[in-house]
Write a protein that binds this DNA or RNA. Structure first.
Lengths: 178, 178
DNA sequence: GCGAGGTAGTAAATGCGTGAACTATATGGG
DNA sequence: CCCATATAGTTCACGCATTTACTACCTCGC
């Protein structure tokens, strides 16, 4: 506590500390570590994502989601819109909308599915591929800058823990997108 | 590779594997682990956040951001809109918009700042506090379910690594929100 | 004190993602 | 074969967050 009668200079970590204390002592909540974990997870993801979008994608006229769709389409070859939605974690509607603009931009091609008259296959155009290579080069450099704060071992542990956090989720009923 | 000539059943992890392989062998990119890390981070955050929003906040008519603003205001007491934006990681405009609707809903109070005629202090109304206690009780249970997939030690390591990932970021120029 | 420059907050315009409703196609039991 | 049901994709209305521009206020140096 500091001179101004409030909490002094409150940054993220002192807030977490304050929250833990008040939640435990004033309200009797017991799962502070869980709160802290999810708060930190959310924050880290937002910070990194925002930086990547602002520093590499926006300047080139792409959105984060646009990039993600192009990325999976680039590497997982022609795929159904449904599959693209699953891999990117977006809704089918989002893929549909994004695809529309990316097709208009000449980066994406939309062809009817072979075995299913309802489905649509997404693939990159030649220009799309070229642009992705370029775009990813930049993104990858920046990703590397971010990741390099951690040692390689730490990075692997982090990936492992994040994976464990979400992959055991069939143990309870998790809400996902359509 | 499987019978259908494509990649068979492609889930997130087989996609990551495929991506790593193609990025390395076909395109010569070198920082696969960084890509994998940020992909996983983003995905984990989205899955958990979506679940919390869908299972506890939406049913009660609150948004994820609304909850976050109420949460910091609840625990960090009356605070300036600016500070709330920093702690929640939103833009000042977002806080301003959210506050407007939360004030209308009778959960939040807006009072002029004491020492600075420009600033606005946000605080919870009595009803806001009651609702937060209730809301957080639910959220905390669910957070606990998520976190419990990991041991306590794993949770602490995860928090530590996530923190390390973002707190050394002054080493390069990171783009943040206004 | 006064004017330049900076900061807090809000407003307006824009863009994007979601759920819900809808179309078209597929599938399977009677 | 046909109808009920399910699924892929799109469209629409809405909510929400962002950027940009603006107002009001503060502060510092001359």
């Amino acid at each position: 506590m500091t001179a101004d009668g409030e909490h002094g200079e409150l940054d993220f970590w002192s807030f977490v500390e304050l929250a833990n204390r008040r939640l435990a002592t004033e309200y009797g909540f017991r799962h502070q570590l869980a709160t802290e974990l999810l708060l930190t997870l959310n924050r880290a993801s937002n910070i990194v994502t925002y930086d990547l979008e602002a520093s590499v994608h926006r300047p080139r006229g792409r959105s984060w989601s646009g990039f993600r769709l192009l990325f999976v389409t680039w590497l997982a070859g022609p795929l159904e819109a449904k599959k693209a939605a699953e891999l990117t974690g977006m809704s089918r509607a989002a893929v549909s909308n994004l695809a529309k603009t990316l097709v208009a931009d000449g980066l994406l091609a939309r062809t009817p599915g072979e075995h299913d008259g309802r489905s649509v296959l997404l693939s990159l155009t030649e220009r799309g591929t070229e642009e992705m290579v370029e775009l990813f080069r930049e993104q990858n450099e920046r990703e590397y800058e971010w990741a390099s704060v951690l040692t390689e071992a730490e990075q692997r542990i982090l990936v492992m823990l994040l994976d464990k956090l979400v992959s055991n989720r069939d143990q309870f009923d998790v809400r996902g997108r359509n």
